[in-house]
């Protein structure tokens, strides 16, 4: 599928706090932005890993949670109307004859801009995969790490693995449509919300679903068709749970992903940059926030904010060749205040 390219000044890969603040710094200079993020919401690690955990080291904000910081940043950048492409992975990067970058996502979105900024933190969030030999051969046929269409699970023998909200919510939701449903978890205790645990236990008590306190050890079947999962219980030893669909929910982990194929020099999965412009080994590609490395680097949100401000200066020169950059303060500049919609 080829979609018409959407043109902008700067493409930002990653909508975590640093990517969001880059929108602000670029916006003050009059640059428009599009952001791509694999998660279904903005905020990156702040929203995905610790939305409820307090952060104490944002200058001027004695305490805020990851979600509150995200919400405040969204409020701060609203005047610049950034365009978000969420649940999309930045997949393919090409250099056009006119010097612009063309970035294609896994959903077919095509973006073009003279400047690319990688603010991808620890990389893309991807599901953790159980260490079961040969599991890859079953993926997308019998093994899924998310439920996208419930209909796929109709009249199937479904085994769900894990003890959190995703695992229990889907155990409960798929029970009425699956032929059989079972849950496997390593302990008889669950991290999920108490009402979900209660609903799950009711299904098990009524005999409409099974609960196995055990660990998965292997897969059985003729790949890609699963016929059962070998489990081992501390009390009762090994057993096979018959199923033709397995849905493991062990949370997310971070992988650098396709950014590694963009032709940028890497150092242990980080992107080396210089500290004047935060440009990578490839001109007009910048890296800011946790994903970059340089002598003295500290992985702090505030470092990323500083890097975003300096990067923006050079991004302006690249996106507006021939124009003179005017350095101004938001406190005194009526031009900046107009951009911010406060004047």
């Amino acid at each position: 599928m080829t979609e018409a390219a959407q043109e902008t000044d700067v493409i930002i890969v990653g909508a975590g706090p640093v990517g969001l603040f880059a929108v602000f710094e670029l916006g003050l200079l009059g640059l428009k932005t599009h952001l791509v993020d694999i998660l279904d919401r903005v905020g990156g690690q702040c929203a995905e890993l610790y939305p409820e955990k307090p952060i104490y080291d944002i200058p001027g904000i004695p305490i805020c949670t990851g979600q509150e910081l995200t919400d405040k940043l969204m409020e701060q950048i609203a005047p610049f109307s950034p365009q978000f492409h969420l649940s999309e992975m930045a997949e393919e990067l090409t250099k056009l004859d006119n010097g612009n970058w063309r970035l294609k996502t896994d959903m077919g979105t095509v973006l073009e801009a003279p400047v690319l900024v990688i603010a991808a933190g620890g990389g893309s969030f991807v599901p953790k995969k159980p260490h079961l030999p040969g599991i890859e051969a079953y993926e997308d046929s019998s093994v899924f790490y998310a439920v996208r269409q419930m209909e796929k699970f109709r009249d199937r023998d479904v085994l769900i693995a894990g003890g959190g909200d995703s695992a229990l919510d889907w155990f409960i939701a798929l029970q009425p449509i699956a032929k059989s449903i079972a849950l496997v978890h390593h302990r008889d205790g669950f991290r999920a919300a108490p009402h979900s645990v209660e609903a799950m236990r009711e299904i098990v008590a009524s005999g409409k679903g099974q609960l196995h306190i055990a660990q998965m050890k292997g897969l059985e079947g003729d790949a890609p068709n699963l016929s059962g999962v070998l489990v081992e219980s501390k009390e009762t030893g090994p057993a096979v749970i018959a199923c033709d669909m397995l849905v493991p929910f062990y949370g997310l982990t971070m992988k650098l992903g396709p950014v590694a194929e963009f032709g940028i020099n890497l150092e242990q999965n980080l992107i080396p940059v210089e500290t004047e412009k935060f440009e990578t080994s490839v001109p007009s590609i910048f890296a800011i926030g946790d994903i970059n490395t340089y002598p003295g680097k500290l992985k702090l949100i505030l470092s990323g904010f500083h890097e975003a401000a300096l990067m923006s200066q050079e991004a302006f020169r690249l996106a507006r060749p021939g124009e003179r950059l005017r350095f101004q303060y938001t406190t005194s500049s009526s031009e900046l205040q107009k951009k911010l919609g406060v004047r």
Partner: peptide, 11 residues
């Protein structure tokens, strides 16, 4: 910690 160990792949 007990809760978060649920996200480990084999406990």
């Amino acid at each position: 910690e007990v809760d978060m160990l649920d996200l480990a792949l084999e406990v």
